[in-house]
């Protein structure tokens, strides 16, 4: 342990090296334990507790909350909560897929620009982040208001009654979600596309590849690292999103995020809220697992 060794050009003893490593590691570990691991464990415990008459936690442990989550209530079985869970997954997947679909052309367009304007364009993509998420979502109220062109157009085609806004609706939720998450896909994807080796594209073309084949074999594999980062950065938070569906979807389009928020807020049922959170976490982990299994060759976490 006390033998001298050379560590990246520095002459040092093994003991000192370990000490230094601990010094660097401790703050981060403490932070994680204090604010992630402990609350997580508390959440697990709470999810098995019950609710008192006035919304206080009752320390009687059982599987009641989980039974309720999968639909067994006092009035028999209902799929309500499972439906919300399923809908959340669906919204997250669709949001992610549409963001990816929009990001590819966007990134190629920006990557083709000369370097100076390129960063201007990227800034434009990021600018929405300079304002608060709630304010940005409220902005959609304005855009989707009854006397704005979008709503008028929708009314003209008889999608909605004239004089009605386009919210709350599933359409508004997707619009809000995609505008929220597009940069999370576009930015990592852009970093991959910017470094794209175009000779592979030319090689594919030289070998008679159709456009689909060029994309599948020359572009997709090269952009996969950026794409997977983008997908995870979108899929995971999109599953738990509550501001956008709350404001733009209202009661019509409740997602699991809203459900959890309700439990910890108006319903005052912390134990059930914790159980839903656990359910969401399991669902997220499961999606990531599926995703990782399909893309074995990329490192996710």
């Amino acid at each position: 342990m006390n033998k001298l060794l050379i560590w990246y050009g520095e002459l040092i003893t093994g003991k000192k090296l370990i000490k230094r490593g601990l010094l660097f590691l401790t703050p981060g570990m403490l932070w994680l334990i204090l604010f992630l691991v402990l609350p997580g464990l508390i959440l697990v415990v709470v999810s098995f507790a019950g609710r008192g008459a006035y919304g206080e936690l009752v320390w009687e442990f059982g599987l009641g909350n989980y039974k309720r989550l999968i639909g067994y209530g006092i009035f028999g079985w209902t799929p309500d909560y499972l439906l919300i869970l399923w809908r959340s997954v669906w919204v997250a997947v669709v949001t992610t897929a549409l963001s990816v679909l929009l990001s590819y052309p966007l990134c190629f367009y920006i990557a083709r620009k000369p370097p100076r304007t390129r960063y201007l364009w990227l800034t434009i993509v990021i600018i929405p982040f300079w304002t608060n998420m709630v304010i940005r979502t409220y902005a959609w109220f304005l855009i989707l208001a009854p006397d704005m062109p979008l709503a008028k157009l929708a009314a003209f085609f008889k999608f909605i009654a004239p004089g009605m806004p386009l919210y709350p609706s599933a359409f508004a939720v997707y619009l809000g979600m995609i505008s929220m998450f597009l940069p999370f896909v576009a930015l990592p994807l852009f970093s991959s596309i910017e470094r794209l080796d175009w000779t592979l594209v030319e090689a594919a073309q030289d070998l008679y590849a159709s456009n689909t084949r060029v994309f599948m074999h020359a572009i997709l594999p090269q952009t996969l690292p950026g794409l997977s980062v983008g997908i995870i950065l979108t899929l995971v938070p999109a599953m738990g999103m509550f501001v956008v569906p709350d404001l733009l979807g209202g009661a019509k389009y409740m997602l699991v995020g809203n459900l959890i928020q309700q439990q910890f807020g108006t319903s005052r049922d912390w134990a059930f809220g914790a159980a839903i959170s656990m359910g969401l976490m399991v669902l997220t982990m499961f999606s990531l697992y599926l995703y990782k299994r399909r893309n074995k060759d990329i490192d996710l976490l």
Partner: peptide, 8 residues
């Protein structure tokens, strides 16, 4: 650079 497809 040969431009072989690395995933194939």
């Amino acid at each position: 650079s040969y431009a072989l497809f690395p995933h194939l």
